Amino acid sequence: MGKVTTKKRQIIRVEGTGKEKHLAFANALNQIHSQVLKEKNDVIVRIEPMTIQIVRAEQETFTERFFFFFLPRVRADYRVLLDVEVEITLIEMETVSFVEKKVADPNGFPIFFGKKKRMYKEAN
């Protein structure tokens, strides 16, 4: 057989959230693999991000207080929406031709007792 892998480029939109900026980006980038697997039924060998564009980056801030009055502190949540261009190396299942072989059941075992019973009944 010859070369079976092919490379394709695709743009994937992912969204991530986190308590810090780098956690929001990490959350978004971790979703790339699952997005590619949803769309493809082929065997994925490698997913490599080529370019990343930020579509939206938001910071939500709020003041958190203990018992509604004490110890106020400002908290923030970050949310990013990214367009990631990825190069996917994959094996297309339509191009692979399988050779069919007929084999006995590897998990089965021959039944010896069934034949002897019949022979015993026929003799009597």
Score class of each variant (00 low, 15 high):
Gly18Ser: 05
Lys19Asn: 10
Glu20Gln: 13
Glu20Tyr: 15
Glu20Asp: 11
Lys21Asn: 12
Lys21Glu: 15
Lys21Phe: 09
His22Gly: 02
Leu23Lys: 06
Leu23Ile: 12
Ala24Glu: 08
Phe25Met: 14
Phe25Glu: 15
Ala26Ile: 13
Asn27Ile: 01
Ala28Lys: 15
Ala28Arg: 14
Ala28Phe: 13
Ala28Gln: 14
Leu29Ser: 12
Leu29Pro: 15
Leu29Ile: 08
Asn30Gln: 15
Asn30Glu: 15
Asn30Val: 10
Gln31His: 10
Ile32Val: 14
Ile32Asn: 03
Ile32Ser: 11
Ile32Asp: 07
Ile32Thr: 11
Ser34Val: 11
Val36Gln: 04
Val36His: 05
Leu37Val: 01
Lys38Ala: 09
Lys38Pro: 12
Glu39Asp: 10
Glu39Cys: 06
Glu39Met: 07
Lys40Trp: 01
Asn41Asp: 05
Ile44Trp: 04
Ile44Asp: 13
Ile44Leu: 13
Val45Pro: 10
Arg46Ser: 08
Arg46Thr: 05
Arg46Pro: 03
Glu48Arg: 05
Pro49Asn: 07
Pro49Asp: 12
Ile52Pro: 02
Ile52His: 00
Ile52Val: 04
Val55Glu: 11
Ala57Cys: 01
Ala57Leu: 00
Glu58Tyr: 00
Glu58His: 00
Gln59His: 02
Glu60Val: 00
Thr61Cys: 03
Phe62Gly: 01
Phe62Leu: 11
Phe62Cys: 09
Thr63Tyr: 08
Thr63Leu: 09
Thr63Ile: 15
Glu64Thr: 11
Glu64Leu: 09
Phe66Val: 12
Phe67Ala: 06
Phe68Arg: 05
Phe68Ala: 14
Phe69Arg: 08
Phe69Cys: 10
Phe70Asp: 02
Phe70His: 04
Leu71Ala: 09
Pro72Leu: 01
Arg73Thr: 11
Arg73Phe: 05
Arg73Val: 08
Arg75Asn: 08
Arg79Trp: 05
Arg79Thr: 10
Leu82Val: 14
Asp83Glu: 07
Val84Gly: 05
Val84Asp: 03
Val84Thr: 04
Glu85Lys: 14
Val86Gly: 11
Glu87Asn: 08
Glu87Gly: 07
Glu87His: 05
Thr89Ile: 07
Leu90Thr: 04
Leu90Ile: 04
